[in-house]
Design a protein around this nucleic acid. Structure first.
Lengths: 127, 127
DNA sequence: CTGCATCCCCGGAGATACTG
DNA sequence: CAGTATCTCCGGGGATGCAG
């Protein structure tokens, strides 16, 4: 696929580095979880309460995925009832600056995006 | 919703700034398009060839969305057959540094993620 | 050349109920 | 407390065909 001369290099989903980041972080929940863990380890129930409107299924599923990617560490304390703690790994922490940067971008520019949307919708209202 | 004391602030999808960025950039195609436009304006057909495996529908749809968000500008030249060019707006260009940073993160750390996955899968293979 | 409309399928994600 | 197991629904996204 994508036979290309050097002049016009193709961009593919599988090649583009940013697409691979999205592959890790695309779910809307992943970032919220990383955020919630930024301050230190948290228990399952704490995360559940902390992150508004997340379902058990999505919390567990996203935690597993992050664990598999080596971004968080799951620790089970032998106790009854069980205590399970989640914490960012060093690898996971390397994402924090980038997330904060994105957050900053939103703070700076999101109002402009909202404004652009309003204008666009107004112009395309007459149909 | 989410009545919370100051001690344990809740994080919600609608509030978290990063979630709003994802709202803009979440589709796997958006970033590829921004990338493709980083070097300058491009015509519809050029984009279509440039971005591997994108369908007409998704290209058009994503372009419209980016235009609505004020990140790209659509210019129609009166000609037959029609010529349509797309280019990043100044607002759209403010995203480029962040995308490049993410790309750098991937370059630096993605191998570790792949390795973590392999280990995880190996450990959980015996079931 | 640059789209829009339509049909259709698959997987993400919520709700609910049960377990060690 | 910290999950797992189903069922289901909805919408993202591909394929195809038509249009200015």
């Amino acid at each position: 696929m994508a036979r290309q001369t050097a002049a016009t290099p193709a961009i593919s989903v599988t090649d583009c580095a940013y697409s691979r980041v999205l592959e890790i972080v695309s779910s809307k929940w992943t970032v919220l979880i990383i955020f919630a863990l930024a301050g230190g380890a948290q228990r399952y129930g704490e995360l559940r309460r902390r992150i508004a409107d997340i379902s058990q299924k999505m919390l567990t599923q996203t935690l597993r995925q992050l664990e598999r990617d080596g971004l968080i560490k799951r620790t089970v304390m032998p106790a009854v009832p069980p205590i399970v703690e989640y914490a960012l790994t060093p690898l996971g922490e390397t994402l924090l600056p980038h997330i904060r940067q994105m957050k900053q971008w939103t703070t700076d520019y999101y109002p402009l995006v909202e404004q652009a949307r309003k204008e666009y919708d107004r112009e395309n209202a007459q149909k």
